[in-house]
Design a protein around this nucleic acid. Sequence first.
DNA 1: ATTCTGACTTGCT
DNA 2: AAGCAAGCCAGAA
Length: 138
Amino acid sequence: MRTEYVEAVLELVALIPAGTAVAYGDVAELLGSGGPRQIGSVMSHYGSAVPWWRVLKSNGEAPPGHEREALALYLNEGTPLRGSYLDCLRTGEGRWRVDLAAARWAPADADFDRIDAIAGRLERELHKLSAPDDEMTV
DNA sequence: ATTCTGACTTGCT
DNA sequence: AAGCAAGCCAGAA
């Protein structure tokens, strides 16, 4: 189901500029909630409408099962790559990955404002759900 | 309540 | 560089 968490993740991913990328864990950190696996889960189920290829594994490998498609997109938007991606294109044999050190998205001040807005909204939403427990204790 | 599973990470061979 | 085990977090069975 499209929970607040899912919405927050998708909104955040939508902010990632072309040519840059972040790791699943980075998204979780920016969001201030959940872990890498939660992000991966959200992307696999609801990521089709956002730039999913800009969120990948911490070692720079493209999301499992979408390597081919992702490579085309990276080349298309000039994302820094490492390894023999050319061979991969021609012979389908080379190993490659995104040069995350060079491609990692560095949010500007304006971006952080939006990120904080999303994270804050999510925070309040989650708190709201776990709040009604004051009377139960005692 | 318990167990399993997964578009994850990190650390150790 | 490549494989493996153990953490880790939530949702589903």
